[in-house]
Design a protein around this nucleic acid. Structure first.
Lengths: 156, 156
DNA sequence: TTAGGTGCAAATCTTTTGCAGAAAG
DNA sequence: CTTTCTGCAAAAGATTTGCACCTAA
């Protein structure tokens, strides 16, 4: 945890930015909620619990800055708000999302399935991939089970 | 063209909706700009050229309706506006985008590279894919060339 | 001292909604 | 008639910006 904060601090400083208390509080919230995809408003409310004096604009500015520095990933699931995800150190790429259109649940896959495709893009299209986004919409395992209950035929 | 309008008309009518002149004008604009990814505002301005009396709210409502009927695809590239794409009849899936972070250009790949992955999702995660979204950000072929000019060393 | 940061409030921008009237079956 | 649809204007919600003050190298 502290190590990761330190790393962000160095990243910021290398570009002439400071890790102010507000920024640190924001990063901590992101760190503590790494599993979620928080909106700016979410982050704001969580930061406020510990640093009540912080302003929403500062949170926006911090998230924007972190986004530019590729510390967080700014995403859009189509619900009208931007959501922010801390980037795992090891994982230069964004993870993929499975969004269930029935129950709205969202899970993630960390596997990086796209490397072969990215190599192909480079070869065939001359396009050098820096990042990608891949989301799937469909029916999750749970809903699939509910839809098709066990085939214990009670029929004629 | 007329055939596709007719088809939309039938889709709408099958759900009790009408293909009003405004809706038809909107669909025509989408049809004429199938290559682009128009925002609601874009569509509005294009429709206005031929039907100046139309209101922006109507365009939004129409796009929303078409989106629900899966006639268009509502997308989000993270630039703060929703964009709309007519769905090709043949192509149940969304195409993929290559977005250049240097010049901002966007091109598309129509190949469906994800079928193997989708089968794997079904097998390994029990997740039935209905649709997907895949976008790549990176450096396009053109910018790659500009960045690395021919190695005619004009040396020391 | 100077550039970077902050909080607040106002402004901006996209999208949605309420409403009264028009159109169509 | 009754339902669907429309344009307009107002509202809502998310994000950005102007500004005066603050803070650390």
């Amino acid at each position: 945890m502290e190590a990761r904060i330190e790393k962000v601090k160095q990243q910021l400083q290398s570009q002439g930015y400071k890790l102010t208390p507000q920024r640190e509080a924001t990063v901590r919230v992101l760190l503590e909620n790494e599993e979620d995809h928080l909106s700016a408003e979410d982050v704001f409310m969580l930061v406020k619990e510990k640093s009540p004096e912080i302003g929403l604009a500062t949170v926006y500015r911090t998230l924007e800055l972190l986004s530019e520095m590729h510390v967080v990933e700014k995403m859009n699931f189509g619900d009208g708000v931007a959501r922010y995800d801390l980037r795992a150190d090891s994982n230069k790429h964004h993870h993929h999302h499975l969004i269930c259109v029935q129950c709205g649940s969202m899970s993630e896959i960390m596997e990086d399935w796209l490397l072969p495709l990215e190599e192909r893009l480079d070869r065939e299209y001359g396009f050098t991939v820096l990042d990608h986004r891949m989301d799937f919409q469909g029916i999750c395992a749970k809903c699939n089970n509910v839809n098709k209950p066990p085939e214990t035929d009670s029929g004629t």
